[in-house]
Nucleic acid binder design. Sequence first.
DNA 1: CAGTGGTCTAGACCACGTC
DNA 2: ACGTGGTCTAGACCACTGC
Lengths: 247, 247
Amino acid sequence: MTTTKKAPKYQKIKQYVLQGIASHNFIDGVPSENQLAEKFAVSRMTARRALDDLEREGSVERIPGKGTFVRRSGHYTQGFFRVRPFRKWAEDLGADLRTEVLESRVVDPPEEIAETLRYSGQMIRLCIINYLNDMPVRYAVRYLRADQCADILWENLAENSIHDILINKYRLPLTRISQCMTAVGLPENLSDLFGEKPGYPVFYFQRTVYSCESPVTYVEYFMRGDMAFKDTFTPMLEAGDFHPETS
Amino acid sequence: MTTTKKAPKYQKIKQYVLQGIASHNFIDGVPSENQLAEKFAVSRMTARRALDDLEREGSVERIPGKGTFVRRSGHYTQGFFRVRPFRKWAEDLGADLRTEVLESRVVDPPEEIAETLRYSGQMIRLCIINYLNDMPVRYAVRYLRADQCADILWENLAENSIHDILINKYRLPLTRISQCMTAVGLPENLSDLFGEKPGYPVFYFQRTVYSCESPVTYVEYFMRGDMAFKDTFTPMLEAGDFHPETS
DNA sequence: CAGTGGTCTAGACCACGTC
DNA sequence: ACGTGGTCTAGACCACTGC
Protein backbone atom coordinates (compact mmCIF):
# COMPACT_ATOMS: atom_id res chain seq x y z
CA MET A 1 0.00 0.00 0.00
CA THR A 2 2.93 2.30 0.49
CA THR A 3 4.36 2.12 -2.99
CA THR A 4 2.64 3.07 -6.20
CA LYS A 5 0.51 0.43 -7.81
CA LYS A 6 2.30 0.08 -11.14
CA ALA A 7 5.91 0.45 -9.94
CA PRO A 8 7.37 2.80 -12.55
CA LYS A 9 10.84 2.01 -13.78
CA TYR A 10 12.33 5.21 -12.44
CA GLN A 11 11.50 4.08 -8.92
CA LYS A 12 13.94 1.21 -9.21
CA ILE A 13 16.61 3.59 -10.40
CA LYS A 14 15.95 5.91 -7.49
CA GLN A 15 16.22 3.02 -5.08
CA TYR A 16 19.48 1.93 -6.66
CA VAL A 17 20.98 5.38 -6.35
CA LEU A 18 19.72 5.92 -2.80
CA GLN A 19 21.15 2.60 -1.70
CA GLY A 20 24.41 3.49 -3.35
CA ILE A 21 24.50 6.78 -1.50
CA ALA A 22 23.73 5.08 1.80
CA SER A 23 26.52 2.58 1.15
CA HIS A 24 28.93 5.44 0.51
CA ASN A 25 29.54 4.43 -3.06
CA PHE A 26 29.24 7.34 -5.47
CA ILE A 27 31.47 9.46 -3.28
CA ASP A 28 33.06 10.89 -6.37
CA GLY A 29 29.88 11.06 -8.35
CA VAL A 30 26.62 9.30 -9.05
CA PRO A 31 26.49 7.34 -12.34
CA SER A 32 25.65 9.59 -15.25
CA GLU A 33 22.27 9.64 -16.94
CA ASN A 34 23.57 7.62 -19.84
CA GLN A 35 25.18 5.04 -17.57
CA LEU A 36 21.99 4.60 -15.59
CA ALA A 37 19.93 4.40 -18.77
CA GLU A 38 22.16 1.64 -20.08
CA LYS A 39 22.38 -0.23 -16.79
CA PHE A 40 18.60 -0.34 -16.40
CA ALA A 41 17.87 -0.67 -20.10
CA VAL A 42 15.68 2.39 -20.20
CA SER A 43 15.73 5.55 -22.22
CA ARG A 44 17.76 8.43 -20.98
CA MET A 45 14.60 10.42 -20.19
CA THR A 46 13.60 7.77 -17.68
CA ALA A 47 16.97 7.67 -15.97
CA ARG A 48 16.84 11.42 -15.95
CA ARG A 49 13.44 11.38 -14.31
CA ALA A 50 14.88 9.38 -11.44
CA LEU A 51 17.70 11.85 -10.92
CA ASP A 52 15.23 14.73 -11.23
CA ASP A 53 13.32 13.36 -8.28
CA LEU A 54 16.42 12.76 -6.21
CA GLU A 55 17.60 16.25 -6.90
CA ARG A 56 14.29 17.78 -5.85
CA GLU A 57 14.33 15.65 -2.74
CA GLY A 58 17.75 17.01 -1.93
CA SER A 59 19.70 13.77 -2.22
CA VAL A 60 21.87 14.70 -5.14
CA GLU A 61 23.17 17.78 -6.83
CA ARG A 62 23.74 18.17 -10.53
CA ILE A 63 26.43 20.23 -12.13
CA PRO A 64 26.04 20.78 -15.87
CA GLY A 65 28.96 19.50 -17.82
CA LYS A 66 30.41 17.72 -14.81
CA GLY A 67 28.03 15.19 -13.39
CA THR A 68 25.69 14.30 -10.54
CA PHE A 69 26.98 14.25 -6.99
CA VAL A 70 25.83 13.29 -3.54
CA ARG A 71 24.64 16.25 -1.56
CA ARG A 72 25.92 17.15 1.83
CA SER A 73 23.65 18.91 4.29
CA GLY A 74 25.66 21.43 6.32
CA HIS A 75 23.43 22.39 9.19
CA TYR A 76 23.39 25.78 10.73
CA THR A 77 20.92 26.80 13.37
CA GLN A 78 18.82 29.81 13.15
CA GLY A 79 16.32 30.35 15.93
CA PHE A 80 13.87 28.39 17.96
CA PHE A 81 10.26 27.40 18.05
CA ARG A 82 7.65 25.63 20.07
CA VAL A 83 5.19 23.09 18.87
CA ARG A 84 1.79 22.87 20.39
CA PRO A 85 0.47 19.49 21.37
CA PHE A 86 -1.34 18.05 18.44
CA ARG A 87 -4.58 17.38 20.21
CA LYS A 88 -4.77 20.84 21.68
CA TRP A 89 -4.10 22.35 18.35
CA ALA A 90 -6.89 20.40 16.70
CA GLU A 91 -9.24 21.36 19.52
CA ASP A 92 -8.58 25.04 19.10
CA LEU A 93 -9.16 24.79 15.40
CA GLY A 94 -12.37 22.93 15.95
CA ALA A 95 -10.88 20.47 13.50
CA ASP A 96 -11.37 16.76 13.46
CA LEU A 97 -8.24 14.94 14.56
CA ARG A 98 -7.69 11.33 13.71
CA THR A 99 -4.70 9.21 14.57
CA GLU A 100 -3.72 5.93 13.00
CA VAL A 101 -1.02 3.61 14.23
CA LEU A 102 0.67 2.17 11.18
CA GLU A 103 3.29 0.17 12.98
CA SER A 104 3.94 -0.81 16.56
CA ARG A 105 6.56 -3.38 17.30
CA VAL A 106 9.86 -4.23 18.94
CA VAL A 107 12.97 -3.61 16.88
CA ASP A 108 16.71 -3.42 17.16
CA PRO A 109 17.36 0.28 16.87
CA PRO A 110 19.47 1.91 14.17
CA GLU A 111 22.81 3.03 15.49
CA GLU A 112 22.01 6.76 15.60
CA ILE A 113 18.88 6.10 17.61
CA ALA A 114 20.77 3.91 20.05
CA GLU A 115 23.28 6.70 20.52
CA THR A 116 20.66 9.36 20.90
CA LEU A 117 18.78 7.43 23.55
CA ARG A 118 22.02 6.14 25.05
CA TYR A 119 20.63 2.63 25.08
CA SER A 120 21.54 -0.20 22.77
CA GLY A 121 18.91 -2.76 23.75
CA GLN A 122 15.69 -3.37 21.92
CA MET A 123 13.27 -0.57 21.32
CA ILE A 124 9.67 -0.06 20.48
CA ARG A 125 9.13 1.57 17.16
CA LEU A 126 5.85 3.35 16.51
CA CYS A 127 4.76 4.78 13.18
CA ILE A 128 1.84 7.09 13.50
CA ILE A 129 -0.04 9.29 11.12
CA ASN A 130 -2.27 12.19 12.08
CA TYR A 131 -5.14 13.46 10.00
CA LEU A 132 -6.74 16.86 10.34
CA ASN A 133 -10.19 16.91 8.78
CA ASP A 134 -9.18 13.77 6.91
CA MET A 135 -6.10 15.38 5.45
CA PRO A 136 -2.86 13.65 6.41
CA VAL A 137 -0.72 16.31 8.03
CA ARG A 138 1.89 14.54 10.13
CA TYR A 139 3.78 11.29 9.96
CA ALA A 140 5.84 10.33 13.00
CA VAL A 141 8.31 7.58 13.75
CA ARG A 142 8.97 7.17 17.44
CA TYR A 143 11.42 5.05 19.39
CA LEU A 144 11.02 4.07 23.02
CA ARG A 145 13.19 1.89 25.20
CA ALA A 146 11.61 -1.53 25.39
CA ASP A 147 12.85 -2.04 28.94
CA GLN A 148 11.09 1.08 30.12
CA CYS A 149 7.68 0.79 28.56
CA ALA A 150 7.19 -2.42 26.64
CA ASP A 151 3.53 -2.53 27.58
CA ILE A 152 2.89 0.56 25.53
CA LEU A 153 2.40 -1.82 22.64
CA TRP A 154 -0.95 -2.73 24.10
CA GLU A 155 -2.17 0.78 24.67
CA ASN A 156 -4.71 2.44 22.46
CA LEU A 157 -2.33 4.94 20.96
CA ALA A 158 -4.87 6.22 18.49
CA GLU A 159 -6.96 7.62 21.33
CA ASN A 160 -4.49 8.35 24.10
CA SER A 161 -1.52 10.66 24.15
CA ILE A 162 1.82 8.92 24.37
CA HIS A 163 3.06 11.57 26.74
CA ASP A 164 0.08 10.95 28.99
CA ILE A 165 0.90 7.29 29.13
CA LEU A 166 4.57 7.85 29.80
CA ILE A 167 3.80 10.19 32.65
CA ASN A 168 0.84 8.55 34.26
CA LYS A 169 1.47 4.86 33.73
CA TYR A 170 5.21 4.70 33.58
CA ARG A 171 5.90 7.52 36.02
CA LEU A 172 8.38 9.18 33.70
CA PRO A 173 8.26 12.92 34.32
CA LEU A 174 9.22 14.62 31.10
CA THR A 175 11.73 17.23 32.08
CA ARG A 176 13.39 18.31 28.90
CA ILE A 177 12.70 18.44 25.21
CA SER A 178 15.34 19.04 22.61
CA GLN A 179 14.34 19.44 19.03
CA CYS A 180 15.40 20.59 15.63
CA MET A 181 13.37 21.62 12.65
CA THR A 182 14.28 22.00 9.00
CA ALA A 183 12.36 22.20 5.76
CA VAL A 184 12.89 19.29 3.40
CA GLY A 185 11.30 17.67 0.41
CA LEU A 186 8.80 14.92 1.12
CA PRO A 187 10.61 11.58 0.97
CA GLU A 188 9.51 9.24 -1.73
CA ASN A 189 8.20 6.56 0.60
CA LEU A 190 5.78 9.00 2.24
CA SER A 191 4.42 10.31 -1.00
CA ASP A 192 1.36 8.09 -1.06
CA LEU A 193 0.68 8.59 2.61
CA PHE A 194 0.50 12.35 2.25
CA GLY A 195 -1.03 12.34 -1.18
CA GLU A 196 1.72 14.68 -2.36
CA LYS A 197 4.59 14.29 -4.78
CA PRO A 198 8.05 13.47 -3.51
CA GLY A 199 9.78 16.77 -2.97
CA TYR A 200 6.67 18.53 -1.69
CA PRO A 201 7.92 20.95 0.98
CA VAL A 202 7.43 19.67 4.51
CA PHE A 203 8.73 20.46 7.94
CA TYR A 204 11.05 17.83 9.34
CA PHE A 205 11.32 17.57 13.11
CA GLN A 206 13.71 15.59 15.23
CA ARG A 207 12.94 15.55 18.91
CA THR A 208 14.40 13.88 21.95
CA VAL A 209 12.44 13.86 25.19
CA TYR A 210 14.22 13.44 28.50
CA SER A 211 13.13 12.41 31.94
CA CYS A 212 15.58 13.63 34.56
CA GLU A 213 18.42 14.00 32.06
CA SER A 214 17.89 10.50 30.77
CA PRO A 215 16.61 10.26 27.21
CA VAL A 216 13.27 8.50 27.10
CA THR A 217 11.99 8.74 23.59
CA TYR A 218 13.09 9.99 20.22
CA VAL A 219 10.60 10.98 17.59
CA GLU A 220 11.02 12.35 14.11
CA TYR A 221 8.19 13.56 12.01
CA PHE A 222 7.25 15.12 8.75
CA MET A 223 4.54 17.73 8.63
CA ARG A 224 2.93 19.44 5.71
CA GLY A 225 4.68 22.69 4.87
CA ASP A 226 1.44 24.62 4.67
CA MET A 227 0.82 24.06 8.36
CA ALA A 228 1.76 27.53 9.51
CA PHE A 229 3.68 28.58 12.56
CA LYS A 230 2.48 31.90 13.82
CA ASP A 231 3.66 34.14 16.55
CA THR A 232 3.11 37.60 17.88
CA PHE A 233 5.43 38.93 20.50
CA THR A 234 7.04 41.99 21.93
CA PRO A 235 10.68 42.37 21.06
CA MET A 236 12.12 43.19 24.48
CA LEU A 237 15.77 42.90 25.27
CA GLU A 238 15.62 39.41 26.61
CA ALA A 239 18.47 36.95 26.70
CA GLY A 240 20.10 37.79 23.41
CA ASP A 241 16.89 37.12 21.61
CA PHE A 242 15.08 39.10 19.00
CA HIS A 243 15.57 42.69 20.05
CA PRO A 244 15.85 46.08 18.41
CA GLU A 245 19.62 46.48 18.43
CA THR A 246 20.10 44.05 15.63
CA SER A 247 18.60 43.26 12.29
CA MET B 1 20.47 38.22 -14.71
CA THR B 2 17.60 36.79 -12.78
CA THR B 3 16.25 34.56 -15.53
CA THR B 4 18.05 31.65 -17.16
CA LYS B 5 20.25 32.48 -20.08
CA LYS B 6 18.60 30.45 -22.83
CA ALA B 7 14.94 30.95 -21.81
CA PRO B 8 13.50 27.44 -22.19
CA LYS B 9 10.08 27.15 -23.74
CA TYR B 10 8.50 25.70 -20.63
CA GLN B 11 9.24 28.95 -18.80
CA LYS B 12 6.86 30.82 -21.03
CA ILE B 13 4.19 28.25 -20.37
CA LYS B 14 4.71 28.54 -16.63
CA GLN B 15 4.42 32.30 -16.85
CA TYR B 16 1.23 31.99 -18.82
CA VAL B 17 -0.33 29.65 -16.30
CA LEU B 18 0.83 31.69 -13.32
CA GLN B 19 -0.60 34.86 -14.81
CA GLY B 20 -3.84 33.06 -15.51
CA ILE B 21 -4.01 31.92 -11.91
CA ALA B 22 -3.31 35.42 -10.64
CA SER B 23 -6.05 36.77 -12.91
CA HIS B 24 -8.48 34.24 -11.50
CA ASN B 25 -8.99 32.51 -14.79
CA PHE B 26 -8.63 28.75 -14.57
CA ILE B 27 -10.97 28.67 -11.58
CA ASP B 28 -12.48 25.51 -12.91
CA GLY B 29 -9.24 24.03 -14.16
CA VAL B 30 -5.94 24.92 -15.77
CA PRO B 31 -5.69 24.10 -19.50
CA SER B 32 -4.79 20.47 -20.07
CA GLU B 33 -1.36 19.31 -21.15
CA ASN B 34 -2.56 18.79 -24.71
CA GLN B 35 -4.20 22.20 -24.85
CA LEU B 36 -1.06 23.91 -23.62
CA ALA B 37 1.08 21.91 -26.02
CA GLU B 38 -1.07 23.00 -28.93
CA LYS B 39 -1.36 26.62 -27.80
CA PHE B 40 2.40 27.00 -27.49
CA ALA B 41 3.24 24.72 -30.41
CA VAL B 42 5.41 22.45 -28.31
CA SER B 43 5.38 18.75 -27.62
CA ARG B 44 3.27 17.47 -24.80
CA MET B 45 6.38 16.61 -22.78
CA THR B 46 7.34 20.26 -22.74
CA ALA B 47 3.94 21.48 -21.66
CA ARG B 48 4.03 18.76 -19.07
CA ARG B 49 7.38 19.93 -17.81
CA ALA B 50 5.87 23.35 -17.12
CA LEU B 51 3.01 21.85 -15.13
CA ASP B 52 5.45 19.56 -13.31
CA ASP B 53 7.29 22.58 -12.05
CA LEU B 54 4.14 24.42 -11.04
CA GLU B 55 2.93 21.37 -9.18
CA ARG B 56 6.18 21.01 -7.27
CA GLU B 57 6.10 24.70 -6.46
CA GLY B 58 2.63 24.22 -5.05
CA SER B 59 0.74 26.38 -7.53
CA VAL B 60 -1.36 23.68 -9.09
CA GLU B 61 -2.66 20.25 -8.25
CA ARG B 62 -3.10 17.45 -10.72
CA ILE B 63 -5.77 14.82 -10.56
CA PRO B 64 -5.28 11.87 -12.90
CA GLY B 65 -8.16 11.43 -15.26
CA LYS B 66 -9.63 14.79 -14.33
CA GLY B 67 -7.25 17.62 -14.96
CA THR B 68 -5.02 20.24 -13.44
CA PHE B 69 -6.39 22.68 -10.93
CA VAL B 70 -5.34 25.75 -9.02
CA ARG B 71 -4.26 24.91 -5.56
CA ARG B 72 -5.78 26.53 -2.53
CA SER B 73 -3.65 26.98 0.52
CA GLY B 74 -5.82 26.34 3.58
CA HIS B 75 -3.71 27.64 6.40
CA TYR B 76 -3.82 26.18 9.81
CA THR B 77 -1.52 27.28 12.54
CA GLN B 78 0.53 24.99 14.54
CA GLY B 79 2.86 26.52 17.05
CA PHE B 80 5.23 29.39 17.31
CA PHE B 81 8.85 30.23 16.87
CA ARG B 82 11.39 32.97 17.27
CA VAL B 83 13.98 34.04 14.79
CA ARG B 84 17.29 35.32 15.94
CA PRO B 85 18.63 38.47 14.39
CA PHE B 86 20.64 37.57 11.39
CA ARG B 87 23.81 39.33 12.41
CA LYS B 88 23.81 37.79 15.85
CA TRP B 89 23.28 34.40 14.40
CA ALA B 90 26.21 34.77 12.04
CA GLU B 91 28.39 36.05 14.87
CA ASP B 92 27.67 33.05 17.04
CA LEU B 93 28.44 30.71 14.20
CA GLY B 94 31.67 32.51 13.52
CA ALA B 95 30.39 32.61 9.99
CA ASP B 96 30.95 35.30 7.45
CA LEU B 97 27.81 37.31 6.83
CA ARG B 98 27.39 39.37 3.71
CA THR B 99 24.41 41.45 2.73
CA GLU B 100 23.59 42.75 -0.70
CA VAL B 101 20.88 45.23 -1.56
CA LEU B 102 19.39 44.14 -4.86
CA GLU B 103 16.73 46.79 -5.06
CA SER B 104 15.90 49.94 -3.16
CA ARG B 105 13.28 52.27 -4.52
CA VAL B 106 9.93 53.94 -4.08
CA VAL B 107 6.93 52.00 -5.36
CA ASP B 108 3.17 51.96 -5.23
CA PRO B 109 2.46 49.05 -2.93
CA PRO B 110 0.47 45.99 -3.90
CA GLU B 111 -2.98 46.00 -2.36
CA GLU B 112 -2.26 43.37 0.32
CA ILE B 113 0.77 45.29 1.49
CA ALA B 114 -1.21 48.52 1.66
CA GLU B 115 -3.82 46.75 3.78
CA THR B 116 -1.27 45.13 6.03
CA LEU B 117 0.52 48.38 6.72
CA ARG B 118 -2.76 50.29 6.74
CA TYR B 119 -1.31 52.89 4.44
CA SER B 120 -2.01 53.35 0.78
CA GLY B 121 0.62 55.94 -0.12
CA GLN B 122 3.92 55.21 -1.67
CA MET B 123 6.32 52.81 -0.04
CA ILE B 124 9.94 51.95 -0.11
CA ARG B 125 10.65 48.50 -1.38
CA LEU B 126 13.90 46.83 -0.46
CA CYS B 127 15.14 43.54 -1.84
CA ILE B 128 18.00 42.13 0.13
CA ILE B 129 19.94 38.93 0.01
CA ASN B 130 22.05 37.52 2.81
CA TYR B 131 24.98 35.23 2.34
CA LEU B 132 26.50 33.02 4.98
CA ASN B 133 30.01 31.98 4.07
CA ASP B 134 29.18 32.96 0.51
CA MET B 135 26.15 30.74 0.36
CA PRO B 136 22.89 32.59 -0.30
CA VAL B 137 20.61 31.72 2.59
CA ARG B 138 17.94 34.39 2.78
CA TYR B 139 16.15 36.61 0.32
CA ALA B 140 13.96 39.34 1.76
CA VAL B 141 11.51 41.81 0.30
CA ARG B 142 10.65 44.62 2.66
CA TYR B 143 8.15 47.44 2.49
CA LEU B 144 8.36 50.63 4.50
CA ARG B 145 6.13 53.68 4.46
CA ALA B 146 7.78 56.34 2.34
CA ASP B 147 6.33 59.10 4.50
CA GLN B 148 7.97 57.67 7.59
CA CYS B 149 11.46 56.93 6.45
CA ALA B 150 12.14 57.94 2.88
CA ASP B 151 15.74 58.74 3.69
CA ILE B 152 16.41 55.10 4.37
CA LEU B 153 17.13 54.86 0.66
CA TRP B 154 20.42 56.60 1.29
CA GLU B 155 21.51 54.45 4.17
CA ASN B 156 24.14 51.78 3.85
CA LEU B 157 21.80 48.88 4.33
CA ALA B 158 24.44 46.31 3.54
CA GLU B 159 26.32 47.28 6.68
CA ASN B 160 23.68 48.57 9.05
CA SER B 161 20.66 46.89 10.51
CA ILE B 162 17.36 48.22 9.29
CA HIS B 163 15.93 47.88 12.76
CA ASP B 164 18.79 49.94 14.14
CA ILE B 165 18.06 52.67 11.69
CA LEU B 166 14.34 52.65 12.36
CA ILE B 167 14.89 52.92 16.07
CA ASN B 168 17.80 55.27 16.29
CA LYS B 169 17.28 57.58 13.34
CA TYR B 170 13.55 57.51 12.91
CA ARG B 171 12.66 57.11 16.57
CA LEU B 172 10.27 54.28 15.88
CA PRO B 173 10.27 51.98 18.90
CA LEU B 174 9.45 48.50 17.67
CA THR B 175 6.83 47.25 20.05
CA ARG B 176 5.32 44.24 18.40
CA ILE B 177 6.23 41.63 15.83
CA SER B 178 3.73 39.35 14.20
CA GLN B 179 4.92 36.64 11.92
CA CYS B 180 4.03 33.46 10.17
CA MET B 181 6.20 30.69 8.81
CA THR B 182 5.46 27.91 6.36
CA ALA B 183 7.56 25.59 4.26
CA VAL B 184 7.21 26.09 0.53
CA GLY B 185 8.99 25.25 -2.67
CA LEU B 186 11.50 27.80 -3.88
CA PRO B 187 9.77 30.10 -6.39
CA GLU B 188 11.08 29.99 -9.88
CA ASN B 189 12.31 33.56 -9.96
CA LEU B 190 14.58 32.98 -6.97
CA SER B 191 16.09 29.81 -8.38
CA ASP B 192 19.19 31.46 -9.78
CA LEU B 193 19.67 33.62 -6.73
CA PHE B 194 19.79 30.63 -4.42
CA GLY B 195 21.50 28.30 -6.82
CA GLU B 196 18.77 25.75 -6.23
CA LYS B 197 16.04 24.35 -8.42
CA PRO B 198 12.52 25.73 -8.22
CA GLY B 199 10.69 23.63 -5.66
CA TYR B 200 13.69 23.31 -3.37
CA PRO B 201 12.27 23.33 0.17
CA VAL B 202 12.59 26.69 1.88
CA PHE B 203 11.08 28.43 4.86
CA TYR B 204 8.76 31.26 3.95
CA PHE B 205 8.30 34.02 6.49
CA GLN B 206 5.86 36.88 6.55
CA ARG B 207 6.40 39.44 9.24
CA THR B 208 4.82 42.70 10.22
CA VAL B 209 6.59 44.95 12.69
CA TYR B 210 4.63 47.50 14.72
CA SER B 211 5.56 50.61 16.56
CA CYS B 212 2.94 51.49 19.16
CA GLU B 213 0.23 49.45 17.44
CA SER B 214 0.91 51.10 14.14
CA PRO B 215 2.41 48.87 11.45
CA VAL B 216 5.78 50.17 10.38
CA THR B 217 7.25 47.61 8.04
CA TYR B 218 6.32 44.37 6.36
CA VAL B 219 8.92 41.90 5.27
CA GLU B 220 8.67 38.52 3.67
CA TYR B 221 11.57 36.26 3.12
CA PHE B 222 12.66 32.91 1.87
CA MET B 223 15.31 30.99 3.72
CA ARG B 224 17.03 27.77 2.84
CA GLY B 225 15.25 24.79 4.36
CA ASP B 226 18.46 23.31 5.73
CA MET B 227 18.87 26.27 8.06
CA ALA B 228 17.81 24.50 11.23
CA PHE B 229 15.69 25.78 14.05
CA LYS B 230 16.75 24.26 17.31
CA ASP B 231 15.37 24.47 20.77
CA THR B 232 15.76 22.86 24.13
CA PHE B 233 13.24 23.61 26.81
CA THR B 234 11.47 22.31 29.86
CA PRO B 235 7.88 21.34 29.30
CA MET B 236 6.21 23.05 32.21
CA LEU B 237 2.52 23.68 32.43
CA GLU B 238 2.66 27.15 31.04
CA ALA B 239 -0.15 28.93 29.29
CA GLY B 240 -1.51 26.08 27.24
CA ASP B 241 1.85 25.43 25.76
CA PHE B 242 3.74 22.24 25.32
CA HIS B 243 3.09 20.32 28.49
CA PRO B 244 2.83 16.73 29.60
CA GLU B 245 -0.93 16.33 29.68
CA THR B 246 -1.20 16.22 25.95
CA SER B 247 0.46 14.51 23.07
C1' DC C 1 37.54 16.29 -28.34
C1' DA C 2 34.23 13.26 -25.71
C1' DG C 3 31.19 13.26 -21.83
C1' DT C 4 27.96 15.62 -18.98
C1' DG C 5 23.56 17.58 -17.93
C1' DG C 6 19.44 20.75 -20.04
C1' DT C 7 16.01 20.90 -23.28
C1' DC C 8 12.93 19.16 -26.74
C1' DT C 9 10.28 16.20 -30.15
C1' DA C 10 6.61 13.12 -31.93
C1' DG C 11 5.08 9.57 -31.20
C1' DA C 12 3.24 5.50 -27.76
C1' DC C 13 0.59 2.73 -24.08
C1' DC C 14 -1.66 2.76 -19.65
C1' DA C 15 -5.07 3.79 -15.73
C1' DC C 16 -8.32 6.64 -14.43
C1' DG C 17 -12.58 9.71 -14.41
C1' DT C 18 -16.62 11.46 -16.93
C1' DC C 19 -20.34 10.99 -19.77
C1' DA D 1 -15.70 6.27 -26.01
C1' DC D 2 -13.08 10.08 -24.94
C1' DG D 3 -10.09 13.18 -22.46
C1' DT D 4 -7.09 13.45 -18.60
C1' DG D 5 -2.70 12.85 -16.45
C1' DG D 6 1.43 9.12 -15.73
C1' DT D 7 4.94 6.81 -17.91
C1' DC D 8 8.14 5.75 -21.54
C1' DT D 9 10.91 5.63 -25.93
C1' DA D 10 14.68 6.72 -29.28
C1' DG D 11 16.23 9.80 -31.09
C1' DA D 12 18.00 15.15 -31.33
C1' DC D 13 20.61 19.73 -30.48
C1' DC D 14 22.71 22.75 -27.14
C1' DA D 15 26.06 24.59 -23.50
C1' DC D 16 29.29 23.48 -20.53
C1' DT D 17 33.43 20.94 -18.48
C1' DG D 18 37.56 18.43 -18.73
C1' DC D 19 41.29 16.78 -21.07
